[in-house]
Write a protein that binds this DNA or RNA. Structure first.
Lengths: 304, 304
DNA sequence: CTTGCAATATAAGCTACTCTGAATTTATAA
DNA sequence: TTATAAATTCAGAGTAGCTTATATTGCAAG
């Protein structure tokens, strides 16, 4: 028999509290017979009487008191557990943990967050901004449900959902010779002073391939591992660079940088949603993915 | 389902410890299928995953860790309970609590205790000497399993097992005129100075009835509520008295009292074992009762 | 990528447990 | 004593959860 089945524990606790089998039976919605059998079975299993039925109302023996205490403690621990569980459920079923690279664009993320909060008010969105490799790590370690990265790379453990393609433009200082142009042809970049990304970054590989495909030799002056530094360098007239248009908005509004369209349709930055291959997504996470995918925001024809 | 069935708790704890359903199954002597079903049922009941089976070896989710902790705590509490229970069992199934009047005779009780210890070495005998009314009270309150009393009186709550009949003799000082006699007839007691028991004691009623039945008028000089005081008074020549022979042994050996048989077969002190009417006796208690009853020690023909 | 192995999941049938309901016994109060 | 409320006993029914057999999945090695 189950010495520790919930019904049993509660039943026995109630019996000792109410000093009556029949009342405990009623209180727990079972027949009196069932309670009798339960207690008898307990006594048989323990090899000692728990109740003294010789007198009425029945009394509890020393062993019975011991068991009643046990019941009380376990039931209390159970309640505690259920409360904790509810909290964890609330958290892990109600929140989406997103790890994102910095350059996804804070302002857009805020918009998405707002829309998500509107649609699923009970949900909680936790966005963490990390360097690309740490985004992958977070997803792999299940510290994030979703990752937002550029140039997403699937692997055995990682699945990619393509998200959007960002227009890449030439970033230049307003004082640069090309600054006034609305568009440039790739060939026009020959020999320009160029600020690039560190080699190992995917975006660097893509940009370099683009340059190579067009037989363009540029003059690499500096390279950094993040966009912010590159923007700074461009603004300080160290050269031009190629980057997603959207992340330059602020600097453009301030007149620190200008964006010049490049006549090269193959030049774009793909963004992707990554997640662990066999991950089961709960309601809320699914809703969030749906939100991301459903409105692939119209590519902003930046200059217009 | 039973969220707290022992097998289940242990099973889940083992699963989380071993990080394997199949090993936990083997360790608990059930099929791997059963474990899968158990865990699935738990997850269904909780409405949240406990294990992450996507990777091998499987990992435990936050909720799973919570439940595993719960399992650990409950199992620990269970062990604790079982230890306590064993102690209580040892005590309440292995000890006989006896409440006895003083005048049952300490020396004989020691003998009985020794014999009992020889027969049931695991047992523990707790003898408590009390005034008669407190013996009844102890039995009623289940503070004693058995009571040893004289002139036992059954009641609704109390059952009597007749135990033995003690010879009653005339107790006198060695200096008393009757001291040399081996036996006296009841009539010879007419007019003697007599030390009696307090009226309300059963023994007083019996002795007085005996005297009245034989039309004997004695000269009541003193009365006490206990034998010890009466013996003292007799030794100090305040008069004679009637009492069980056996309790005078020591004083007789010391030459402080003499016992004289009384030619009256109806004069005896009945001793009885009392217990609560519907009491269930365990092995050890039954053995003790058997010991008491089996050897109704030969009435010691005291003088011989 | 396929293949093989080990772990886990699913399906279906069966066993055994525990509940219910009715009849019986027990404890207490009038 | 009788009347009552309470506890026990017994037999039968429904089902939870096990087992076995089979399918699926995860992972590592060729």
């Amino acid at each position: 028999m189950d010495l520790m089945n919930y019904e049993n524990l509660k039943l026995f606790r109630d019996v000792t509290q109410m000093r009556s089998l029949s009342r405990a039976a009623a209180a727990n919605g079972v027949s009196q017979s069932a309670v009798t059998q339960q207690v008898q079975e307990l006594e048989r299993a323990f090899g000692i009487g728990l109740l003294d039925r010789a007198n009425r109302p029945l009394t509890v023996t020393a062993a019975g008191r011991l068991y009643a205490d046990f019941c009380r403690d376990v039931l209390r621990r159970r309640d505690e557990f259920l409360v904790e569980l509810e909290q964890v459920k609330q958290h892990s079923l109600g929140t989406v943990r997103v790890a994102s690279i910095y350059s996804v664009g804070l302002s857009e993320m805020v918009e998405i967050e707002q829309e998500f909060a509107r649609r699923v008010p009970s949900a909680c969105l936790e966005v963490e901004y990390l360097r690309p490799e740490r985004v992958y790590a977070a997803v792999l370690a299940d510290e994030a449900d979703l990752g937002l990265v550029s140039y997403p790379e699937p692997s055995r453990e990682i699945t990619v959902i393509p998200w959007r393609k960002e227009e890449m433009v030439l970033a230049a200082s307003p004082y640069h010779p090309l600054a006034g142009r609305a568009q440039v042809a790739p060939e026009e970049l020959k020999g320009v002073e160029f600020i690039g990304f560190d080699r190992e970054l995917p975006i660097a590989r893509e940009v370099n391939r683009f340059l190579k495909d067009h037989n363009i030799e540029v003059n690499h002056t500096l390279h950094f591992d993040n966009l912010q530094m590159i923007k700074e360098a461009v603004a300080h007239r160290a050269g031009v660079s190629i980057m997603p248009a959207r992340i330059m908005f602020e600097e453009m509004a301030q007149g620190r940088l200008v964006a010049i369209a490049i006549d090269a349709p193959e030049l774009y930055r793909p963004l992707g949603i990554i997640h662990r291959r066999k991950k089961r997504f709960h309601q809320v996470a699914q809703a969030f993915i749906a939100l991301l995918c459903e409105s692939p925001k119209p590519e902003l024809g930046l200059i217009s």
